[in-house]
Design a protein around this nucleic acid. Sequence first.
DNA 1: ACGATATATGTCAATTTAGTAATGAATGGA
DNA 2: TCCATTCATTACTAAATTGACATATATCGT
Lengths: 104, 104
Amino acid sequence: MTDGQIEEAAHLFAALAEPARLRIIQALLGEDLTVSELIEVTGYRQANASKHLSILLRAGLLRRSKEGTFVRYSVSDPFLKKLCSMVCGRMEHHAEERLRALCS
Amino acid sequence: MTDGQIEEAAHLFAALAEPARLRIIQALLGEDLTVSELIEVTGYRQANASKHLSILLRAGLLRRSKEGTFVRYSVSDPFLKKLCSMVCGRMEHHAEERLRALCS
DNA sequence: ACGATATATGTCAATTTAGTAATGAATGGA
DNA sequence: TCCATTCATTACTAAATTGACATATATCGT
C-alpha cells in the first residue's frame, strides 16, 4: 500500500468519525432526502448539516442532485451500506459479549 | 440505532482515521510485533507509536501481551481484517475509475 | 427585476488531536 | 542491589475540527 492510499483510507475513515455524519448516513440509508428534510429529521442546524454533507460528498460517499432550489442527497457508495451493516454487526456482537460478562 | 451506538461507531472510525495507525495495523496484519519492532518497521518515535497503539487497543482492535520487558501487539479483531480488505478493494476500484476517466 | 426560500460558505471561539521531549514504571541481567 | 532496556505517560506546542452565527449564492414565483 502506497502512502497516498493510506492517506486516502484515513481520509475516508475521518469522514465517518463523527456522530452527526453517521446519523445523516443512517437517515439517507433509509431514503434519499433533501437538506431541509434532513434538518427536520436530525434536528441539526442548516449550516452544520450542509457542512457535514459536503464532507461526505467530498469523500465520495454521497451523491448530490439538485431539484429546483432543493438539493437531494443519496448514498452513492455500495461499499458504505456493506460497511454500515458490518459495523452494526460488530457492535451487536460486543453488546452480547458485555452482557455475557455481566451475567457470568 | 441508539445515540450510544452511534458514538461508539464514530469512536471506532476515529481510531482508524489516522495514517500512522493504519500503517501500524498494516504492519501487524503481516505478523505480530513488539513495540520495538514496530518502531523499527515504521520509523515512528517510541512515544508516538505507544500512543497510537494505546488508541487502537482501547478501540478493541488490537491485543496486547507482555514478553519480559517487551510488549507484543497483534490484531485481535477479525472484523478489522475484513474491513481492511474491503477498503483496499474500494480504493483499487476508485483507482481504476480515475484511470478510465483519464483515458476517455 | 424583486422578494422569498433553500443551500453553501466564511469567520470565530472552544475543543480535540498529533508529535516531541522528558519522565515514570516494570522487567531482566550482572 | 544496581543498571540498562522496554514501554507507558505527562506536559507542552501547533494544527485541525466542530458548532454557532452571519452572510453569500441560487432558484422560483410574481
